[in-house]
Simulated scan of single mutants.
Amino acid sequence: MYKRQIQNTRRFAAAPFRHGDAEILPGQQVLVVLAAANRDPAANPDPARFRPDRTDPVVLTFGAGAHACPGRTLAVAVTRAVVRELLDAGFDPAALPAEPAYRPLANARIPVL
């Protein structure tokens, strides 16, 4: 079984806006790199490091405002339960590869198992 993660999507500007040095005009396409969520070192220092003890992390995974995921609470609860069951059954997270390999796809991140 593969865990598929969609890495990017496109949006179209409804109004003009500026992002860094780029000026985006209404109707222009913007590539949104979902894989970068939570990876901003200004928001979460050392973002590549798994730190469950991180205090006040900036978590963008489930969106916000009108685009907030309605299943956030359920998804977190299911994930916690699965991880707890795996650990209780003797699963050792240290047995996972430090650097997993992924299929070479442009908009999905699919590990090679």
Rank of each mutant, 00 (worst) to 15 (best):
R49F: 00
G27E: 04
R51H: 03
A48P: 03
P41E: 12
V59Q: 01
A48C: 07
V33K: 06
V33N: 12
A48N: 12
L34E: 04
D21I: 11
R51E: 11
V30A: 08
A37K: 01
A36P: 03
A37L: 04
A35S: 13
P57E: 11
V58K: 08
D21E: 15
Q28G: 01
A48V: 15
N38K: 06
A43V: 09
V30F: 01
R39M: 12
A22N: 13
P47N: 15
A35M: 10
R51L: 08
N38Q: 09
A22Y: 03
E23W: 01
N44R: 04
D53M: 14
V58N: 05
A36V: 10
A36C: 12
I24S: 02
R39G: 01
P41N: 11
R54P: 02
L60V: 09
P26C: 06
A48I: 08
T55V: 11
R54K: 13
A37V: 10
P45R: 13
P41K: 08
Q28H: 00
R54H: 15
A36M: 14
P52S: 09
V32I: 15
D53F: 12
L31D: 08
A22V: 03
N38F: 05
V32N: 05
G27T: 09
G27R: 02
R39Q: 11
D46G: 07
A35C: 04
A43E: 10
A22L: 05
D46Q: 10
A36K: 11
V58F: 07
A37D: 02
P45M: 15
V58T: 12
D40W: 02
A22H: 06
E23R: 00
R54I: 14
P52A: 11
A35Q: 02
G27K: 00
D21L: 09
A42Y: 00
V33L: 10
L34I: 10
N38W: 07
V58A: 08
A36E: 14
R39N: 06
R49K: 02
P52G: 08
R49H: 03
D46K: 11
D40H: 10
P26S: 12
D53Y: 03
P47H: 15
N44M: 07
V32M: 14
A35G: 14
R39S: 05
N44E: 07
A37G: 06
D56A: 15
Q29V: 06
N44A: 06
A42Q: 07
